[in-house]
Design a binder for these strands. Structure first.
Lengths: 342, 342
DNA sequence: GTTAGCACTCGTATATTTAGAGTGCTAACA
DNA sequence: TGTTAGCACTCTAAATATACGAGTGCTAAC
């Protein structure tokens, strides 16, 4: 059963309005605002139909209607304009991002910040899993007094560092030698591959180096794994307060608590890794805690390997068009960093 | 005019109770709870006196009393027990921190997390200013395709890294040479000193290196300075919800907004850098936004140079004794990292 | 098929009442 | 002279009652 064009127009008008205001919208509002020149009574009839078909819901008899998840889905898939941004806004966006990303050491934080500021939502950025990234170099730096710092530099420019204690103070030159040996060995491999490869080395190989390297790699891998659930960065958590429906302290609190259970968020983002753009509306989310939220994520990839997954989380009545546009332009900005300027 | 011992006991009882419950405390409560065996009526008289002297305030006629900032000050200075923790709790603390700090690459985040978890307050940690830290090594790592990563390793194990573009792909060996030259030049100096020193180099010195080094140092310094207000890490922001007096959405919101204006927090922490332990109660804070909060900070130093400043921020009715104890044990744990195990 | 009219519903905002916690004062007591 | 029981008084917070209004669904006319 297909829905008449007028019904769709009405539905779109309702969703648009609800996304703006957050209050159930009545027939009068639609009659006045939209360009469907028809009386409130007529619209009421259509609305009753739309409700029967599951697109609208009524909080209570004397309230207007609000869109259901199903309605948002339809809205996102076919109703909404591709972008709700004007040309000026878009060029502002581009400029803004260019500035943001100009001198960046910590891309992840910048993406999180940019994303939340532009969307006025809470942003979620998945820190790329160090386990699956190619190593570029290992460098041991002597800090003196039996302390050393082991640096793992990855292909993508990420750096992880670990403080280790040495049994005795070791000559800088010797540390460099180990560093070089390790680098030669691991370069181009992921942590995991490097570790298994190293285990297979025959004992004939320079033993001390190997033992040292094994210890290091093991340590790092453990560390990387144990901090698995923390590989997530948030931005703009308090943006949720902008939404009147979160003025209730418990709602707000629950939301902030949800943000703290990074396991859940991690799962969601990790699940969407394969998708260039993922939109999960309300009950479409698997996680119970997210059943009344929407999560929109994008994955940026290069040479068919994902570099990063990032997105926003917020009320189902978020401005999907705007969010999608912004995600798009952030991807593009990352292109600039990782490709053009290379 | 000195205050009688009984008055002090009553005041302490009131503060203790108010810290626990957050609700104004009446004469009955004190009469029952404390070991001052005296009738409510008597306590009322004393309370009236204490109010006159500015130690107590009454939200309204028919409510109990709550401590004033002045009362908290007295409490902190002379009334409270040094530690409200039992021996078991303390050994738990020590164990907890030992675990936390065992395999740490990011000390700052760990301190923030530990602090907020243990105190149930919001923690604030000042990231040590890279400008004034001694450099240990500079290492340039080739990432391929005209990209390179410049690593600045500091004496204390901190690492800052910057992605740079190279005009053309440069031989790894050559990059190592530059790295070594730079390291030799900067080792033991702060960024600022290194920069001025380098400017004074005569042009006879290997010119390319110098130019390259100058550019790098300049870039890093700019970056470090421009991110000045961000040198702060928070933990447990939502702990504020544990306090019933912050159930009001606006209070909570204001608090979270305050946390976002890192300038203010930075100022506060930086101001207290010289003090091993600083307790600012309510109006004692200079900042208007903090006039109804308390900020307790500790500075950890080594060889008379501060390594880190960290503390908590929360309602004036925080459990000062507990907070101080915990700050103390965190300092101690850091000793373990930076000294004993060295 | 569309629309004006109207009775009806129900949530929110406002006013009113009630209950109780705590006080200050007075007068009696040790 | 300091302590205490007794009691009237105050003021908040919770509970209850009232009023308002936005929005609906239905009916009947166009």
């Amino acid at each position: 059963m297909s829905i008449s064009d007028r019904k769709l127009m009405i539905l779109k008008a309702i969703v648009d309005d609800y996304i703006m205001t957050g209050t159930p919208v009545g027939s009068r509002t639609i009659a006045k605002k939209s360009d469907i020149n028809v009386s409130p009574a007529t619209i009421r009839n259509e609305m009753a139909d739309l409700e029967e078909e599951g697109y609208l819901e009524q909080p209570h008899t004397s309230a207007g209607r609000k869109p259901s998840d199903k309605a948002y889905r339809l809205y996102v898939d076919t109703l909404m304009r591709a972008s709700s941004l004007t040309n000026e806004e878009i060029s502002f966006l581009k400029q803004y991002m260019k500035n943001k990303f100009s001198d960046v050491s910590n891309v992840v934080e910048t993406v999180a910040e940019t994303l939340s500021e532009l969307t006025n939502l809470t942003s979620v950025v998945l820190v790329p899993d160090a386990k699956n990234k190619e190593l570029q170099r290992i460098q041991i730096v002597n800090l003196g007094e039996h302390n050393a710092l082991v640096l793992f530099v990855f292909r993508d420019g990420d750096v992880k560092n670990f403080r280790v204690k040495m049994p005795k103070d070791i000559d800088d030159q010797y540390l460099d030698n180990i560093s070089n040996w390790l680098t030669d060995f691991v370069k181009g491999k992921t942590l995991e591959v490097a570790l298994t490869d190293m285990k297979e080395l025959s004992m004939d190989d320079i033993d001390v180096y190997q033992q040292f390297g094994l210890n290091l790699l093991n340590m790092v891998l453990n560390n990387v794994e144990s901090s698995g659930s923390k590989n997530i960065v948030l931005g703009g958590a308090k943006n949720i307060f902008n939404y009147p429906e979160y003025q209730d302290i418990n709602e707000a609190r629950n939301f902030l608590t949800l943000l703290d259970t990074k396991d859940a968020l991690y799962k969601v983002l990790a699940d969407n890794k394969d998708l260039e753009l993922s939109i999960r509306i309300g009950k479409e989310n698997d996680r119970e805690e997210l059943k009344n939220m929407s999560v929109v994520t994008a994955t940026y990839r290069m040479d068919n390997k994902e570099i990063g997954t990032f997105g926003v989380i917020g009320p189902t009545r978020m401005d999907y068009a705007k969010v999608i546009t912004i995600l798009h332009y952030i991807s593009e900005s990352m292109d600039t960093i990782f490709k053009n300027e290379k």
